[in-house]
Design a protein around this nucleic acid. Sequence first.
DNA 1: ATTATTAGTAAGTTATATTGACTTATTGTA
DNA 2: TACAATAAGTCAATATAACTTACTAATAAT
Lengths: 147, 147
Amino acid sequence: MKELLYLKDEQIKDFIQLLFYAYRETFSDPKEILAKNSFGPAHLRALNLIERNPGTQLGELMYQLKITKQSLNRVLRDLLKSKMIKQIKDEEDTRRKNLFLDKEGKIFFEKIYETQKKRIFNALKNSEPDSVIKFKEVLNKIINGTK
Amino acid sequence: MKELLYLKDEQIKDFIQLLFYAYRETFSDPKEILAKNSFGPAHLRALNLIERNPGTQLGELMYQLKITKQSLNRVLRDLLKSKMIKQIKDEEDTRRKNLFLDKEGKIFFEKIYETQKKRIFNALKNSEPDSVIKFKEVLNKIINGTK
DNA sequence: ATTATTAGTAAGTTATATTGACTTATTGTA
DNA sequence: TACAATAAGTCAATATAACTTACTAATAAT
């Protein structure tokens, strides 16, 4: 293993802490808006994923969120009841139900997103395009655990 | 506001998702080791902070973790009972109790850290020093919410 | 026709957090 | 010195979000 002197344990331990804070702050921003509808962080995580992947299905959400069907069901039931999301049967396999943001859900999500956007946008706006690309690369490498 | 064409909503929404995954994966790595001692993610967060800030106090942990004293107390009680951490009265203000990893705690933390280190190290090792520095800068900006 | 898959539900449990109301010890101050 | 403020700790009740186990129903694939 190469000696990467700038990559000491202290540095890496710092990154672990920074990741914790960055995640927590970003996902705390929409707390008040969510609370008005009696939603919590679990609802936010589901909404985020459905917005990013329109037409996704229950099984896919389970996999992405790493939670069980029973746990996810509570959240989806809440979101369906308040018309934030809608289910549309898949045409090719009618067992599957594709999930989309409903009209009201799109408006609601934009409100949520505005609070999160500020934080990320302000962090990135003074960075060069190159830094943003590299930041994304590193995040992806952390997630995928490339050896 | 300048038109930063590379900083579109789609890009920012991606970052929000990436932050979620990066945090979750990094903090999932030590799950099995923690479970052996009946510890959960809350214990890990406390251990991480105490290791990074030896001598920190209850009030400081409450502030950093954004949880209540009652909630933190359960976690600290568990960690004290199993000799992972120790409390030493502050000499200047004996109301305060400084928190440190105990001998066993240091060994335990190293085991935990090894699992987290792999992920971060592998993500950073192929990056240039400059990228690592910029990555850290962006994370700090996200946390501190610089306008 | 049988098996596998996808979605959904129910009951009971656990972990983590909350609020509110206290106690105890110590420090700082009027 | 008496009093208020601070730091730590506890007890009780509650809420949220997750879990396991065990089912049902509809549809698809073999």
